[in-house]
């Protein structure tokens, strides 16, 4: 188990991306919904091995479940069809609507959970570094990783500002108007102070030759291993096999 875990987590970011891509594209290629519903289960399995079960389940439930339920409700009641399964006053659930929602939600769940899995097993810093190796400008990868680093810092800052405003007498609880009014005094200082910090950041980056047109070195080491090639070849074989099976047989 431990071995499998390090195996998955130590894969090269692009290999992980290929796995995700495979899990995203094959449900769209294959007909029916059985396989598509298997993909989230497969993702859960991989997440379990990687030791990220809780986060994976949390995000899938929070992000995907509500939309899946809504699709079922909307489509079951309002999709045009004649095969009525159940009626209540003027509303009726139709077979066509259920079929349609099963199809649609299977694809959404498959693609969605593959994306969730990718971000759970890949560190953004690794991803950024592998993109750099692929030739993406360090400026672009800086934007990505720096955005992720700023968010927790800014969250803390926001809480501090809200506490300060509360002491001053700004109300944050009550009816909608009061809560909406609290939005502004909390957000303005946060935004203004974070924007004014760009000055120092620019100087810091400039002093480290951020914009110099030379080849950059990095302390962050990433290496492709044998398991990467194995996984890639396996994925390719599987994919070609599925393509042939789908379109030529």
């Amino acid at each position: 188990m431990e071995k499998l875990r390090t195996f998955i987590l130590n894969l090269y970011p692009t290999t992980k991306f290929f796995i995700t891509l495979f899990l995203m594209i094959t449900p769209l290629l294959l007909p029916g919904y059985l396989y598509s519903y298997l993909v989230p289960v497969l993702c859960l399995f991989i997440a379990m091995i990687a030791g990220k079960t809780k986060l994976f389940v949390d995000i899938v439930f929070k992000g995907l479940l509500s939309i899946v339920i809504m699709i079922f409700l909307l489509q079951a009641f309002f999709y045009p069809g004649d095969t009525i399964l159940w009626t209540w006053k003027i509303f009726s659930i139709k077979q066509e609507g259920i079929d349609f929602s099963v199809q649609l939600t299977s694809k959404i769940l498959a693609v969605g959970s593959a994306i969730v899995l990718f971000f759970q097993i890949t560190k953004i810093n690794d991803l950024a570094r592998s993109l750099e190796i692929l030739g993406v400008s360090p400026k672009a990868t800086y934007v990505l990783s720096s955005a992720l680093n700023i968010i927790p810092e800014m969250r803390m800052h926001l809480l501090r500002i809200m506490d300060a405003q509360k002491t001053r007498g700004v109300e944050t609880e009550g009816n909608l108007r009061i809560r909406l009014k609290a939005f502004f005094p909390a957000l303005t200082p946060l935004i203004l102070s974070s924007f004014s910090s760009t000055d120092e950041k620019a100087i810091t980056l400039e002093s480290r030759a951020f914009t110099a047109r030379t080849k950059k070195t990095s302390l962050h080491q990433l290496e492709k291993t044998k398991s990467d090639s194995v996984v890639r070849v396996l994925l390719l074989i599987l994919f070609v096999f599925i393509l042939i099976w789908r379109f030529f047989l």
Binding site: A147, I150, I151, M154, I191, S197, L205
Partner: peptide
């Protein structure tokens, strides 16, 4: 440098 800050503001 504005981009990550803009992104973080959106999220927060």
């Amino acid at each position: 440098l504005l981009i990550p800050i803009g992104v973080a503001i959106n999220v927060v």
